[in-house]
Design a binder for these strands. Structure first.
Lengths: 322, 322
DNA sequence: GCGCTTCGTCGAAGCGCTTCGATGGTTTAG
DNA sequence: CTAAACCATCGAAGCGCTTCGACGAAGCGC
């Protein structure tokens, strides 16, 4: 019977039809536990992410959607399994106990204990993001270098010469959160390449922090005419600070929000120009990577770095003449 | 051995200690599939929600967090299982195949096919929200009646006499989405009770829709001095429309966002006064309900309706003197 | 026509647990 | 002092599948 469904061995066409008919008639359902036990495979992929509590951005939704679909097409279930960052052991045990066959790990930092635990136990996993060390690790990530370069180019092309970058929190920088570190470095490299006066600051993930930070930048460098932000929550504060000072967007100051979703950009007035986080692509690719590792098939060579595309809004424009 | 872990039968203290030691030494892990097969119980609760794609609000994060913790304390895993709304059969089969023991269903509408499918298959479930019919169904929900009453009272106490309510989309109303229907009715009842001039409108979930809607209200009823909103995304448009008309918040117009999170309120300037969605409480209660159904224990009498508490911001104030 | 491979089917052996009945040692009540 | 009651442990029977080996029935070339 098993063969009729899986096709692992040749089966007579008529026999298969009879099996199918019987299944339908009796309302038969294959028992997942028995299946997993006998086949040593749960057909479950766990998407673990620390503390869903922060709220899942639109990007995560897109990601999950695409990942789920990709998994389903391959005969797997994708489930989102909430874990705190400290629960390395629990994440690892998911697979060791056979609850899941492999793990997608989000919010990876450059040195991530969860990854160490997974490696030590030989648990199949794929990182969304990258640790500093990459040997023997499967991953996909946003191309921050490219994204920040494109962002700076976009603004430089518009004539801006002094650009500020509002990054994630100082804490994320200190703890080696990949995106924060990579974006900062890429921003500076791009600024140098274009001869831009660059300022970069970190900001906590709150509108208030973004407002204060922005205000401080404007005090210190009043010649700043463009902001690149990579901090959805703080961006709300950035625009508030500009409004406080009667600076018009985009006439006086341009704002470009990177690694975010246009939906968030639409919450502003005028709608923000953004560089959209490629949630969909990332979700699909990450599952492909993981499945390749699971099924031992050679990971078909596909780019692991995905870029953010510019999504035009109305918040960037030519630098004002002074 | 099983008994040593589960305590289902008396076990010598010393024997248990020996078992534990051996387990630790050998790095033994109970196999989930075998466990499920033998015990006919997966110890998994599935939180199904349609199209995560919309992005998971902070409230959902809170909910998941609390639900996950409650489940864990009872020896269950809570997993988030993304499904489209149309996939009733798949949701049902999760339990029939033994992938999960029970289901938490979010975003329930008054007539929900998913619920019909679950009922027909005798699958244990708890609804977050309510169908029109409630017989033999386990549920928890936000107390929209109470919340809207409190909202209207809050504004009436401040002297407002003309209040507009910005609800979810017309589509959600037409398809019988419980919150939309209940909130509208409750708003009107509360307005009548306080002798308030009430307007209610629906708005698509977009800032632009919110802006246009608000603009229309102000054209039609310029004497409106307060807005109650229950549409996180559209609320962004509401404040934009007020700003367009040089109306100050809260001096000229008050805004009260209900069933939302203070974090979202903080994205505005001034920070919005909100009535916070009780995600945490809802998550805990819903798992309790489901477990009671699963384990056949009498559902300890606890309120199924949870209220939204007022979280003071700076967007509501006394009605302006005219 | 005979041995050869190929195809389709059947039967049976586990997968690693939980659970139940049986066993024997120990305590308590009559 | 004996019968009943209790406690702790052992052994074995599945749970419902997958997978493998074996077997008969065809198909092939010489």
């Amino acid at each position: 019977m098993s063969y009729a469904l899986s096709g692992a061995r040749p089966i007579g066409t008529e026999t298969r039809a009879r099996v199918m008919a019987a299944i339908k008639e009796l309302g038969f359902e294959r028992n997942a536990a028995a299946r997993s036990l006998a086949a040593r495979r749960s057909h479950v992929l766990a998407l673990v992410l620390p503390t869903v509590a922060g709220g899942l951005s639109g990007t995560l939704g897109e990601f999950a959607q695409a990942a789920s679909q990709t998994a389903r097409d391959a005969g797997y279930h994708l489930v989102i399994w909430p874990f705190d960052r400290e629960e390395h052991a629990e994440v690892r045990d998911l697979v060791r106990q056979g609850q899941a066959d492999g793990v997608l790990v989000m919010e990876v930092s450059l040195h991530d204990e969860r990854i160490d635990a997974l490696l030590a136990s030989q648990v199949p996993f794929t990182m969304i993001g990258r640790t500093a060390e990459l040997d023997g690790r499967s991953w996909v990530d946003i191309d921050f270098e490219r994204t920040l370069t494109d962002a700076v180019d976009h603004l430089a092309d518009l004539g801006h010469t002094t650009i500020a970058f509002v990054n994630h929190s100082q804490h994320s920088l200190d703890t080696g959160y990949g995106p924060t570190v990579r974006a900062r470095d890429a921003f500076h490299a791009a600024a140098v390449a274009r001869g831009i006066h660059a300022t970069d600051v970190t900001s906590d993930e709150s509108p208030l922090a973004g407002r204060l930070t922005t205000s401080a930048i404007l005090d210190e460098r009043p010649e700043t005419t463009a902001f690149v932000t990579m901090n959805e929550t703080a961006t709300f504060g950035v625009t508030q600070a500009l409004r406080d000072r009667r600076l018009r967007v985009p006439d006086d100051v341009s704002v470009l929000a990177v690694v975010t979703s246009p939906e968030v950009g639409a919450m502003y007035h005028p709608p923000l120009t953004t560089m959209r986080a490629p949630g969909h692509e990332l979700g699909r690719r990450s599952v492909e990577e993981l499945l390749a590792a699971l099924e031992g098939t050679a990971p078909r060579e596909a780019p692991r770095l995905v870029t953010c595309a510019l999504s035009p809004g109305a918040s960037t424009g030519p630098a004002p003449r002074r």
